[in-house]
Write a protein that binds this DNA or RNA. Sequence first.
DNA 1: TGGACTAGTGACCAAGTGGTCATTAGTTAG
DNA 2: CTAACTAATGACCACTTGGTCACTAGTCCA
Lengths: 223, 223
Amino acid sequence: MPNAERAHTRTRRKRLDPERRETEIVEGASRYFSEVGFDGSMRDLAARLGISHALLFRYFPTKEALVDRVYERIYLSRWDPAWDAILNDEGVQPVERLVRFYTHYLKAIDRPEWVRTFVYGGLAGVNINQRYLKLIERKVVAPVAVELSRLARPRETRATPSGAALELSWGLHGEIFYLPIRRWVYGMKVTTDLEAFVALTVTKFLEGAPAALRNALSTAAAR
Amino acid sequence: MPNAERAHTRTRRKRLDPERRETEIVEGASRYFSEVGFDGSMRDLAARLGISHALLFRYFPTKEALVDRVYERIYLSRWDPAWDAILNDEGVQPVERLVRFYTHYLKAIDRPEWVRTFVYGGLAGVNINQRYLKLIERKVVAPVAVELSRLARPRETRATPSGAALELSWGLHGEIFYLPIRRWVYGMKVTTDLEAFVALTVTKFLEGAPAALRNALSTAAAR
DNA sequence: TGGACTAGTGACCAAGTGGTCATTAGTTAG
DNA sequence: CTAACTAATGACCACTTGGTCACTAGTCCA
């Protein structure tokens, strides 16, 4: 074992093959920036990784390039196609579908890198956020709103959900998303029993939203 | 009119009395930091205010002092005592109470300085946030949870609400808070009809939450 | 064993940061 | 009109930042 326990001081220079080093950098950067925000410095990051900051610039020409890479890693390639199936499985009761979907989703999302980076990005106006939210609207909020409309008015079959239905579905999403926010942004102590939390929230939604929607639609129509 | 239209160039040096200058600085700083985040520089801020950055240090010994002051201005002194009355007015139906309270609250909150600064502060771990959320829990979430418990189980009279009831009330709060977040953090286009939004959300809550709570309590008891 | 290849570094640069201070110039009371 | 008071400034300091580059030293093949 040639590489064990050096007598003379310090972790000497380590030579990694470029591929490994790169993933090490990207992963480290994800963690680092999510803690500190994207104003964190390249030198600090390098120190954490135990390398010189010059090396970072060997792998990424600018800080921006690294940051872009971190974003990419965190969001894109993070929508699990299986979720679509869960959400649209006609053979399952709506409650069950929503509970399953949001439990999976929450489990994937409820991590500091994800949540904090997302919020940092929102504040900075990074456009990846807006793209992501559009995706959420298309894949989750709108379908849920359609389902909700059907529950509220079983007879009607409208393709596009009303504004109120969308608002209510965004409400569900926001409510669920607020759990990781409370945990990772505001540092509050909150449940870790994600499934119970989702079940509770979804039940409330399905018990209350159809009535609220009917109410809103009829008062709007009466005007 | 001695001070009108100088022929020779530039807005010359202006001499304000300290009190006015100070409020001008604090207000400008609130706007500036809420846009840029607290990593914004004192020089930039000064340029925006049309003064030299040295002057800022005449009024605030350090940047931190200014930031503290901005926080103070934005949150503390921003809980309207009238809200307590609205929320606890036994003579009014719960729906109406919640709608009124949250409409007022949302109107006060739904401004970029407030929302963005709050979120920036959360990410940075500023303790004022945690204090504020404790206040919300004490003044809003907990009372709402108590009310909710009463609605779900009219016979019981427990002083402290269950975990599930609290969770549901936090859900309501999160859902409502998510509207300004979407507007000011993620830059989405969302309703400006706050009252209609609150009415919708509160209705959904009151229609759905008691049932969800009963459900949760009985399955927990059955175990 | 010795070279060639190249991952990794230290020292450096220009631009920006928070913060200081001697100096300048509006304003007003006498 | 002048002198005194003090709001406001410009020039400066030490330090940090993103980024560059000539050099150093692991590793592996001949």
